[in-house]
């Protein structure tokens, strides 16, 4: 279950990170090329499915699918919450980026 949870968190992080908006937020205006973005997203989806496979091995089919769907939602929400505060943590460690977040906070 813990392995599955880790896989889900990693998968969602990759999918979310590959979205141009989020990537830009974390890496201040950085840009990902199209094929690379698709590849990252593909790996993310594969990780999500791997979690289902892990859970199906330790539980009966009905419970595995049910818990997978629930955990899918919960882990995605956690990733969203982490992403919400990530730009601030990153900028706290990189002082030169402060002006960027500072401006954003006021808008």
């Amino acid at each position: 279950m813990i392995v599955a949870f880790a896989l889900l968190m990693a998968g969602w992080s990759l999918i979310a990170g590959s979205q141009p908006k989020q990537y830009g937020r974390v890496f201040h205006g950085g840009h990902l090329s199209g094929p690379l973005r698709k590849a990252i997203r593909g790996v993310g989806v594969a990780l999500l499915l791997a979690a289902l496979a892990v859970m199906a091995r330790s539980d009966s089919a009905a419970f595995a699918v049910l818990s997978w769907v629930c955990l899918l939602s919960v882990s995605a929400m956690l990733v969203a919450l982490i992403l919400a505060w990530l730009p601030r943590w990153v900028s706290a460690r990189r002082p030169q980026a402060d002006s960027v977040t500072g401006r954003r906070q006021r808008t």
């Binding site: 979205q19 908006k21 995605a76 969203a80 601030r88």
Partner: peptide, 21 residues
Amino acid sequence: DFFTFRPERKVGRATLDLHNV
């Protein structure tokens, strides 16, 4: 962009973000 939650924004905007997430 359903991962977007910007708590640093104004209450109204952050509320809508959270609603969407």
